[in-house]
Design a protein around this nucleic acid. Structure first.
Length: 1134
RNA sequence: GGGCUUGUAGCUCAGGUGGUUAGAGCGCGACACUGAUAAUGUCGAGGUCCGUGGUUCGAGUCCACGCAGGCCCA
């Protein structure tokens, strides 16, 4: 057997396993790289995954996208190195280890040494590596797993250090501080990337306060007191974080916002007072009834708060007013440096009248905007000294009030330590502060309010905005260049590049590098205690040289690098190294680690240990031609790659990028283990096979759209696409083997001798090659997949093979039969190749089944099919001269005429098995007649009629109608179009005829002469009087339903064939088995049919003889229509 | 609140530059075809193309404003 044959049901998962094994045994992946040595390279960067968790189905999606283009470019002849990598540092691993050990950050260095802790991280981070490797192999993702880059290795860290030093030398690395999101529970500042984690922003109900700040009476405020009639005046400010109120040092107003001065009462103490708030927000705080209620008669128990607006001021007029501190030193709260400059009204550009009071309470240590406007207006922050005398905010790093904070000293700002807060009388700090303010008449409104607030993505606790020392990379210095170069990157989809990424670049801030953690790349900067001298280390050698100086200065006892004691650059070892400054001062390492995103952004350099070695390799592999990751990486890996590329090389780091969307469950919900709707990638691949899984993911939606993952979709792909392709192959294999046919690359039937059908499918095939190449080149795998699928199912299987079956089945191996085999063989081999980037296993299976028999000769003659694997082959070029548009057009006509005829048969209840005499096709042009004439045989065979009859003008039976060509007429007539169109629809047959013959027609529309040309209308035939017709656009078909005796007899013959074939099948006969048939001669029509068409019946059913007899009583009976025919069937063993 | 994005049949998706009957597959019902086919064909049921305005002779398509979902950020 030359072509392997397979039984249904076909096991696609097994193909995956078998091909995988064959790849591994024969080193096909390695060969796909090594055989391209010396060819131009296509550079791909693997974004490193972290192996501290099990891979999910979305990883199959992401990696399929990556794999497709690497395989495609390999087919195109490029060498595609794919170095794998692992992302190993960072908070997720640390938190996982803490959880497993049952410790917190505070315990590190106490309950467990940093050394042990980091060792534990190192072990944990690769825990799921074997699962990742297994998935990589099973899904057919080709990446070099044997020599991956690993971000915790000394060489990798050393590269990062070298890059940092380059930035340092360029002045792009600096120490500063900002108000940053900070997670007291995790004990760390949160990067913007971490705050970008899904689920970070949550709706929470907090106690909120509209606090009353009592205005001091002075020159500035006299205009208010002049209205107040002796009452105290308060400024109202709203906050959702009452715990920041004791740190208040200023109030911000909008310069152009209008503020109202209102006479009213304190709702809690019922004291009369005057308050100030934004005019636009009056209705939020006061009712309409209150404006009418008597000011004088307000008393305890009244629900309606009376109020009167006294005056209006702009924010600018309020600036400079002073007010009393809310929590005073007299009440036990601490004095602080610069207090005399505090408690003033200042302008703030961020103030709105969206909510609150239009006045914003400012605590410079707890808000980024606050910090900025406070600095601009010389408002001090409230700072207190810690036990070492160092000044800091009123909240310490664990999220607790400083001891100095009077009655609230030592209180938790939020529940960061997990204390029991379930008791009914439990009161949060926010509540206690509210209560105190209410008692003192300093609260105007206290209420629970639901708003969104960021939470630490891992501990789930609310973040604090908190001042932290930080090292920054000054990305703002190269902002313009980042934007400029970004415009040269081909983003898929484009909007992610221009919108999401581009807008982000437009609003860039400096990159905060610092992380106060343990497991990560240490910041290689040493400083003197006073910070006046510092050094940035760029290599191990440099560090060693500096240690030598320190040893000489007796700051260090010996050099642990030279002695071989220090082989790891992580903490705690680097922290034990002290250097000496030029002035002889000891220098200590800045204890920060760097953002893990620096690690991954550094992979173009660090994966090669550049700049310490592999200069050539780096040069050859920078920048990347292609990367692909999830859209969530936009401000993560995509950004850090780009930023470092621009800052270090003044270049993009990648030229083409696909940002793929999320994989959701079939209902569009996010997959999560908790909800139990997560799809197990291993089970999916085991059950459906890798190819159908990959194909479904790619064909169903564009990679950058979210994918609603539905297993039923894989089944459909498997049935419809892979099933059809498998069957097409099986058909080829079955008949090729029966004929002992072996395709060769030589001695093929010449093109000129091929049938219409052959030349048609080959034309379609070339168009497909062009189309698929175009889509892949354009990084659009979905359109490529859909084009291949449509070709295989609609064109190849459902038209070419369907209409060619007879050619394969019958007789000797004639030139026509050989041509059919060769054409189908050509199509299948090309399809195998085109599909192989998306379905690498099935593509390989099909390619090898189709070509293994040709290999020896191909190798001997060095022809295209010499390659043992489709993935080693070279992508076929479209032979454009084979594309015959006229042929494609007339085949399209054949398909549509057939479809119309089927439709007519259905209406007339005439099954296809019943032959009919003719169909009638009106033709308006000679070319249509010629086109249809060339495919007449195909149509007749498909719809079982004897011939196609054309009707033209001379027949005198055509009824024509016209349809306005709106596109053309609209441009010509504009507003008059409706009238013109109406006139056209009223055209008489004579007018139509004149338009056709003369080439123009003068008519009158609304009293105006209008000249119509044939292009202005579409002339079509719609009806044949006396005939049942079907139409499809300009095509009309009529069916002659007259049945003659001969046609009836042939119909009977075909029924007999059908029943006999079924009987053969049911009896378990093979296709090539011969039979002898005896039929009961019990009906005259039947006897006539058998006599007339006996030869036909015998050929179709492989019958050596076909006899009629009256004596058949027992045995099987063939039943159809009104007939019931006894039959005896004998098998003839050959 | 801002940026980006999606909204077309029960489901998944197509619908260059505006053109008058909005398509496909799946699913559902019926009938048919088939010695490769668990495939396929024909017919049928199923659409206020998210809404409201606007531009235009003409809007699923362009513009504005909304609504709903998603992602990212404040």
């Amino acid at each position: 057997m030359r072509y392997p044959e397979f039984k249904q049901p076909f096991n696609y998962a097994q193909v995956g396993a078998d091909i995988l094994q064959w790849w591994q045994e024969n080193g096909i992946f390695e060969k796909s790289v090594s055989t391209r040595e010396g060819r131009p390279s296509f550079v791909f960067y693997e974004g490193p995954p972290s192996a501290n968790g099990a891979p999910g189905i979305h990883h199959v999606m992401a990696r399929t996208v990556k794999d497709i283009f690497c395989r495609y470019q390999t087919l195109k002849g490029f060498q595609v190195n794919r170095k794998g990598g692992w992302d190993t540092h960072g908070l997720p691993i640390e938190l996982q280890v803490e959880k497993e050990l049952g410790i917190t950050k505070e315990d590190i260095g106490k309950k467990i040494t940093v050394e042990e802790y980091n060792q534990r991280c190192r072990e944990t981070v690769m825990r799921f590596k074997h699962q990742w490797d297994e998935l990589t192999e099973k899904m057919g993702y080709w990446v070099d797993l044997s020599d991956p880059y690993i971000t915790f290795e000394p060489e990798y860290i050393e590269s990062c250090w070298a890059l940092l030093k380059k930035l340092y030398d360029k002045g792009l690395l600096y120490k500063g501080y900002t108000i940053q999101p900070y997670s007291p529970a995790a004990g760390t500042g949160l990067s913007s990337h971490e705050l970008n984690q899904p689920g970070t922003y949550k709706d929470v109900k907090d106690t909120t306060i509209v606090a009353e700040f009592e205005v001091k009476r002075d020159e500035q405020s006299e205009k208010l007191f002049a209205l107040a009639d002796g009452l105290p005046v308060f400024i109202l400010a709203w906050t959702t974080t009452p715990w920041t109120l004791p740190a208040n040092t200023g109030l911000a107003v909008g310069k152009n916002i209008r503020y109202a001065v209102v006479r009213t009462y304190n709702p809690y103490t019922r004291e009369p007072q005057v308050v100030v708030l934004a005019k636009d927000l009056l209705s939020r705080h006061f009712s309409e009834k209150g404006a009418e209620a008597s000011l004088e008669e307000y008393k305890a128990g009244d629900k309606v708060l009376p109020w009167r607006q006294l005056a209006e001021f702009s924010g600018g007029e309020l600036v400079g007013i002073s007010y009393q501190r809310l929590f005073s030193t007299e009440a036990g709260f601490p004095a602080f440096e610069g207090e005399e400059r505090a408690f003033r009204v200042i302008p703030g550009d961020f103030v709105t009248t969206e909510d609150g009071t239009g006045i914003v309470h400012i605590s410079p240590t707890f808000g980024a905007d606050d910090f900025r406007v406070a600095q601009q207006n010389d408002i001090p922050a409230l700072l207190v000294a810690d036990d070492q005398g160092k000044l800091g905010p009123i909240v310490d790093r664990t999220g607790r009030y400083a001891a100095q904070m009077g009655e609230f000293g030592g209180r938790w700002v939020k529940n960061y330590d997990g204390h029991d807060d379930s008791a009914a009388d439990y009161r949060t700090l926010d509540v206690d502060i509210s209560v105190r303010l209410k008692e003192r008449g300093r609260a105007f409104k206290v209420e629970k309010y639901e708003h969104t607030y960021p939470h630490c993505w891992r501990t789930d606790k609310p973040v604090l905005y908190y001042p932290l020392d930080s090292w920054f990379i000054k990305t703002t210095a190269v902002k313009d260049r980042l934007i400029e170069l970004n415009k040269t990157i081909n983003w898929k989809p484009e909007s992610t590049g221009t919108g999401r990424f581009g807008n982000w670049l437009e609003n860039l801030v400096d990159w905060n590098l610092s992380r106060s953690r343990y497991w990560g790349t240490p910041l290689p900067i040493w400083r003197t205690q006073d910070g006046s001298e510092e050094i940035c280390i760029g290599s191990i050698a440099e560090l060693s040289a500096e240690i030598d100086k320190a040893v000489a200065a007796e700051v260090m006892t010996h050099n642990p690098i030279k002695s071989g004691e220090m082989t790891d650059l992580h903490r705690p070892y680097v922290d034990d190294i002290f250097l000496v400054s030029p002035s002889g001062q000891p220098m200590y390492r800045e204890t920060d680690l760097i953002d893990v995103w620096f690690d991954s952004g550094a992979m173009p350099y660090a994966q090669w240990h550049y700049p310490f070695e592999n200069h050539d390799t780096f040069e050859r592999n920078f920048p990347a031609d292609f990367i692909a990751e999830g859209v969530d990486q936009t401000r993560g890996w995509f950004f850090t790659l780009h930023a470092l590329g621009v800052m270090l090389e003044d270049s993009v780091a990648f030229k083409n990028v696909i940002a793929n969307g999320l994989v959701l469950d079939k209902n569009g919900n996010k997959m999560s283990k908790r909800l139990g709707n997560a799809i197990d990638p291993f089970k999916t691949i085991d059950q459906y096979g890798p190819d159908a899984t990959r194909w479904y993911m790619i064909a169903n939606a564009q990679p950058w759209d979210n994918l609603k993952f539905d297993l039923a979709g894989i089944t459909e792909v498997q049935r419809r696409f892979f099933g059809t392709l498998f069957n097409t192959y099986s058909f080829y294999a079955l008949y090729a083997n029966l004929d002992e046919f072996q395709a060769r690359e030589f001695d093929r039937v010449p093109l000129t001798e091929l049938s219409e059908l052959d030349r048609w499918i080959l034309s379609k095939l070339q168009s497909l090659i062009l189309e698929v190449r175009g889509h892949f080149d354009n990084y659009d795998p979905t359109k490529a997949a859909r084009a291949i699928q449509d070709f295989v199912t609609d064109q190849l299987s459902n038209w070419y093979v369907r209409l060619s079956r007879g050619r394969f089945r019958k007789g000797e191996l004639t030139a026509d039969k050989k041509a059919a085999f060769e054409t189908l063989q050509e199509c299948l081999v090309v399809v195998a190749q085109l599909m192989s980037p998306i379905a690498p296993f099935f593509g390989e299976w099909l390619y090898r089944n189709m070509t293994n028999g040709m290999r020896a000769e191909a190798m001997a003659k060095t022809t295209p099919l010499r390659h043992e694997s489709v993935h080693l082959s070279e992508l076929v070029e479209a032979e454009e001269h084979l594309i015959d548009k006229a042929l494609e057009e007339r085949m399209d006509l054949a398909q549509r005429i057939s479809s119309l005829t089927h439709s007519l048969r259905k209406k007339s209840v005439l099954k296809v098995r019943q032959p009919l005499q003719r169909i009638l096709v009106p033709v308006l042009t000679e070319t249509t007649r010629e086109q249809v004439g060339k495919v007449e045989d195909l149509i007749c065979a498909e719809v079982n009629v004897k011939h196609v009859e054309f009707l033209d003008d001379t027949s005198g039976v055509l009824v024509k109608s016209v349809k306005p060509n709106f596109k053309r007429l609209g441009q010509q007539f504009g507003p008059r179009l409706k009238a013109v169109a109406a006139r056209i629809q009223q055209m008489t047959p004579e007018e139509i005829s004149q338009l056709e013959k003369v080439g123009q027609l003068a008519v009158e529309v609304e009293g105006q002469p209008v000249t119509l040309s044939p292009e202005d209308v579409e002339i079509r035939t719609e009806d044949l009087p006396g005939w049942l017709v079907a139409t499809d656009g300009p095509l009309t078909v009529a069916l002659d339903v007259t049945l003659t005796d001969e046609l009836r007899h042939e119909g009977i013959a075909r029924e007999l064939v059908n029943r006999l074939q079924n009987l053969r099948k049911d009896s378990g006969l093979e296709v090539q088995d011969k039979i002898r048939v005896t039929l009961g001669a019990n009906q005259p029509e039947l006897v006539q049919a058998v006599e007339a068409f006996g030869e036909y019946i015998r050929t179709e059913t492989q019958a050596l003889s076909l006899d009629l007899t009256n004596g058949l009583a027992d045995g099987a009976v063939l039943e159809f229509d009104e007939y019931s025919v006894p039959v005896r069937l004998e098998v003839v063993k050959s």
